[in-house]
């Protein structure tokens, strides 16, 4: 069973590698940051597989922290994409 889990993790690694092409090519910055954020989801999945493979439940905490912090870089990008660097894309005219 651990053999299968590690091979599954290897497959996920290949998928993450494929995703990197979009981060490299991605014409716009939005492409890059969304690919990076979703490759993070792939990383969380790999961490879960490693936790099962090594039967060390503490590794789930690492997956927890990765999932928790995955979004912060993207939120940072969203902020920088707004006009004054501190806004929210969903703000309508009267608030912006």
């Amino acid at each position: 069973m651990t053999e299968f889990l590690v091979l599954a993790a290897l497959a996920l690694l290949a998928i993450v590698a494929a995703g990197l092409v979009r981060v490299h090519l991605g014409p716009s910055r939005a492409d890059r940051i969304i690919s990076a954020q979703l490759i993070g989801t792939g990383g969380v999945a790999i961490a879960l597989l490693l936790a099962a493979a090594s039967a060390d439940t503490a590794i789930i905490d690492v997956a927890l922290v990765l999932a928790l912090l995955a979004a912060f870089a993207a939120v940072g990008f969203i902020k920088s994409a707004s006009r004054d660097g501190a806004g929210d894309p969903e703000e309508t005219e009267e608030e912006a």
């Binding site: 993070g40 590794i59 870089a73």
Partner: peptide, 30 residues
Amino acid sequence: GAIAFFIIYGMLIALAWLRLEGVDVALAEA
């Protein structure tokens, strides 16, 4: 793009620490 790659790099290094069974460091790195 360099910063986006750096964020992915940090996550992959955390996975490397999991393979080295240094879970505390993996947590700190993540």
